[in-house]
Amino acid sequence: MIYGNSVLYDADALRRSAARSSVVRLRAPHASDGAAIWSLIQAQSSLDDNSLYCNLLQATHFAGTCALAEQDDRIVGWVSGYIPPKQPDTLFIWQVCVDPAAQGQGLGRKLVADILSRPDCRHVTMLECTITEDNEASWALFSSIARRLGAQLQQVEHFSRDDHFAGQHDSEFAVRIGPFDPESFTRLTGR
C-alpha cells in the first residue's frame, strides 16, 4: 500500500534516464577491451555466448569493423562485424549488444553507422546479418536501418534448426540490406 505523495518508478527506467544524462562515446575497440566486451555480452541472457578469446580477436583483428559505446568509463554497447573475404561490398554484423541501462538511445544503430563511416567500409554498399525469428529487437533495429538508408531488406532462412544446429538453436534468417549509398550513413545517427 502507498501512503501520501509517494511515486513508484520503474527501476530500469531510472537507470536508462541516468544513462542518458552522461555522454556516450563511440570508438573502435582495443585488445584491453576484450574482457569488458565479453562481460557485457555474458550479462545479456538473450545473446549467444562467444568465448573471451573470440571477443579479443574481434577487438584486435576486426577492430576496424567493430565498435563499442562507452559511458562513464564503462562499455555499454558493442557491435561486432566483418567484411566477408569474397564480398568486399558487404559488412556482416555478427552481434549487437546494448546494456539495458543504455537502451532507448539508438545506440545499436549509431554503432553500425560508426562502423560504416570508417575507411575499412569505404566500398560497402550492403549490410548483412542473421536473426532468429523471435528476436524482435534485432528485427526492429535492422528494419530501422533499412528504412533510414532507403534500402530494401530481404530475408531468407539461412541456418536451419535441424540441418545446421542439430536442434540446439533456433533457425537463423539471413538478412540483407542494400544496396545503399555510402553517403546515406549520416541518416543512421539521428533520432
Rank of each mutant, 00 (worst) to 15 (best):
N5M: 13
L8N: 08
A13F: 00
S17Y: 03
A19S: 15
S21E: 02
R25Y: 00
L26D: 07
R27M: 12
P29C: 12
P29W: 11
H30G: 05
A31E: 13
S32R: 15
W38R: 01
W38P: 00
Q42P: 02
Q42R: 14
A43N: 13
L47Y: 09
D48C: 08
D49T: 11
S51C: 04
S51W: 13
C54S: 14
L57Y: 04
Q58G: 07
A59K: 10
F62Q: 11
A63H: 15
L68R: 00
E70I: 03
I75P: 00
V79I: 07
I83W: 06
K86W: 10
K86A: 13
Q87M: 14
T90A: 11
F92H: 15
I93S: 01
W94Q: 08
V96F: 04
V98L: 06
A101W: 04
R109D: 07
R109Y: 08
R109A: 09
K110T: 08
V112Q: 00
D114L: 02
L116G: 02
L116W: 05
R118E: 01
R118S: 03
R118V: 04
D120T: 10
R122C: 12
H123W: 07
V124I: 14
L127N: 02
L127A: 05
E128R: 15
C129R: 04
C129E: 03
C129K: 02
D134Y: 07
D134A: 09
N135L: 02
E136I: 01
E136N: 02
L141H: 07
F142R: 10
S144D: 15
I145Y: 12
A146T: 11
R148M: 10
R148W: 06
A151N: 05
Q152A: 13
Q152I: 06
L153V: 10
L153D: 09
L153H: 13
Q154Y: 13
V156F: 09
E157P: 15
S160P: 06
R161M: 14
R161V: 07
D162Y: 01
H164Q: 09
A166C: 14
G167M: 11
H169A: 09
S171N: 03
A174R: 14
A174S: 12
V175C: 15
V175R: 10
R176S: 15
R176C: 13
G178R: 07
F180G: 05
F180C: 07
D181R: 10
P182F: 12
P182W: 13
P182M: 10
E183I: 06
T186M: 11
T189W: 09
T189A: 14
